[in-house]
Design a protein around this nucleic acid. Structure first.
Length: 276
DNA sequence: CGGCAAACCTGCGAGC
DNA sequence: TGCTCGCAGGTTTGCC
């Protein structure tokens, strides 16, 4: 479900719900998600206070005393939901967290593609190989160019590779490539310097605009506080196959309009008139 | 190394 | 109404 803007939005919405609260009980209602829960996770979390929250790529980091970190990946369908302690649980509430103020938070994940880990903050294995954080100043055209050099794979696949740049997913890759006017089937290593410069900029722009809109809400996904994101209303190409592309009269041409193709099993949306 | 399909799971909408 | 099919915002593995 979530790419960087959605994870950022969830992390922000989660903050007032958990910050400074002490965990009194964690109940695991499944053996794990995509991977088994770390050994002793529930017991190890009990009694600890969440001191602050942050995000790295598509991971939410809940920081605990003694530099311990509880790492959460939402996968495709993971959500945090607040419930009253007397409310019935959903069958996909796999982790139930009770706090010292009587509040309860549930991690709900129908497809169980999410992931949790708990370790010293310097020893979080899922974070070890991640590429640059796209909204940080360290993510520059030079860095992107370095990570694309000699890559024979398509630019679409390269941008989904979390080691090249972290946090992008299927939606924002299509959107960023559209604004950068780069065809998703281009070989990554074939991009010219000015194209990489444009791409670096559009990645930052599209992610920033989405965070500002509260991320994208597809299906019934919503934030822990119940709010919805609205960036889906601003998609230029994603999910718009057959329609005219914005700011382009290509639909009037015989071969125009937004196309959908499948690349390594995943949909790409693009305008063949604008993107070369 | 590259590219692709499948695997992990469930739910939903479309079409018959 | 009920069935099957295709599709879904992620990541990893294994095969050729």
């Amino acid at each position: 479900m979530p790419e960087l803007p959605e994870v950022e939005t969830v992390m922000r919405a989660l903050t007032p719900l958990v910050l400074g609260r002490r965990i009194t009980q964690v109940t695991l209602r499944a053996k794990g998600l995509r991977t088994p829960f770390p050994k002793g996770m529930a017991a190890n979390l009990t009694g600890l206070t969440i001191t602050h929250l942050s995000r790295r790529a598509k991971y939410i980091l809940l920081h605990l005393p003694k530099n311990q970190t509880w790492l959460v990946h939402l996968g495709m369908t993971g959500t945090f939901i607040t419930r009253g302690t007397r409310d019935p649980l959903d069958k996909h509430d796999h982790v139930v967290i009770d706090f010292d103020d009587g509040s309860r938070l549930c991690f709900n994940d129908p497809r169980r593609f999410g992931q949790m880990d708990m370790a010293h903050h310097t020893d979080l294995k899922p974070l070890a190989a991640l590429g640059p954080e796209p909204l940080e100043a360290t993510f520059t055209p030079f860095v992107l160019a370095q990570n694309l050099v000699n890559k024979k794979t398509t630019i679409k696949a390269a941008l989904l590779d979390q080691q090249i740049v972290s946090g992008l997913g299927n939606i924002y890759v299509s959107e960023a490539l559209f604004y950068a006017r780069i065809h998703p089937q281009r070989r990554a290593g074939s991009l010219k310097q000015n194209e990489i410069k444009r791409l670096c900029a559009t990645i930052k722009e599209v992610l920033t605009a989405s965070i500002k809109a509260g991320g994208s809400t597809l299906k019934d996904y919503r934030h822990p506080d119940g709010n919805l994101g609205f960036f889906q209303n601003q998609f230029a190409v994603y999910g718009h196959a057959g329609q005219a592309c914005p700011g382009c009269n290509c639909k009037l041409a015989k071969t125009g309009g937004i196309k959908r193709i499948v690349q390594s099993g995943r949909s790409s949306f693009f305008c063949a008139t604008k993107q070369k």
